[in-house]
Design a protein around this nucleic acid. Structure first.
Lengths: 152, 152
DNA sequence: ATGCTATGTTCGTAGTACGAACTAAAACTG
DNA sequence: CAGTTTTAGTTCGTACTACGAACATAGCAT
């Protein structure tokens, strides 16, 4: 039973830790007047502009749902659609200046809060945890929903 | 910069791993015709019945939002409200027979999927990861949104 | 008894997100 | 190059999520 006990430990640990991260993410979003989904959109777009298709794949949304999310973000002045010069069907979604500023602030606040979740770990444990999570993220090809480091 | 690099690694690792867990959770929920929130409700109630207040605190919801969530779960026959004999204002929310069965199945499927996220880790790494996440969960007092082990 | 607090619900509002159906443009095919 | 198929996005209808404010009861304290 030792082995199955350890396995359940990983699963419950991952699920509950995710719950904490979600809560912290929601708190940050709220602080900046965003919904979680809008915050996620901004964080993804911090890296580069996306077409609607890629954006949906990255966020795990159907295209029909994404249209509304982008619409609302456009209405708030956070992102804009730009026609793709090479394909008149396609658009690029990118941050506005205001959106970029808000994204940076939200990203920083979220980093700070998530970092605090791990406050009780010493540096070696943090490094170990980072390495283990890095393996999971890599092996499962988690999309870039949150940058490793801020673009300079 | 070595230290700050490691710190960002933990943060990005936690956020992206959470994204993976969320996606897997959503996939499980969908498989069983549930929304994520309904799945979460069932998983919490697997442990024991809750009053609306405790349930809101556990799930991180305002009471007004919780009423609707429970209403819809009642309509689907998954949970029921029972008057608290000691306090005529209060109710206990608990799983119906059908809800209990569905919760077990959903829980098992989710466990399997989350476990697969860590498939590339060997047993020692899994144990280390479980221990590190366990520390975070404990230090931040993550509510019991997902049982450690199924109740027998 | 009388006010204060706690428990839940109702209501209005905004947002999330799916599938099906649709438009338009690009890509393929004979 | 005309005709078909595929791809990119949007629109529409539906159901769900979830907040705050206002409300009704019920318990509690003085």
């Amino acid at each position: 039973m030792g082995k199955s006990g350890a396995e359940l430990g990983v699963v419950a640990g991952l699920v509950r830790a995710s719950f904490l991260v979600n809560a912290v993410y929601a708190e940050s979003a709220r602080e900046y007047g965003l919904t979680v989904q809008q915050g996620q959109l901004l964080c993804v777009l911090m890296g580069r502009p996306y077409g609607m298709g890629d954006l949906g794949a990255t966020l795990g949304l159907e295209k029909s749902g994404l249209t509304g999310l982008v619409d609302r973000a456009v209405r708030r002045g956070l992102v804009r659609r730009e026609p793709d010069p090479d394909d008149r069907r396609a658009v690029h979604v990118l941050l506005t200046g205001e959106g970029h500023e808000l994204a940076e602030d939200f990203y920083a606040a979220t980093c700070r809060r998530v970092d605090e979740l791990a406050a009780s770990l010493g540096t070696p444990d943090r490094d170990r945890l980072a390495a283990l999570l890095g393996t999971i993220v890599r092996e499962n090809e988690a999309p870039t929903v949150f940058l490793d480091t801020v673009q300079r």
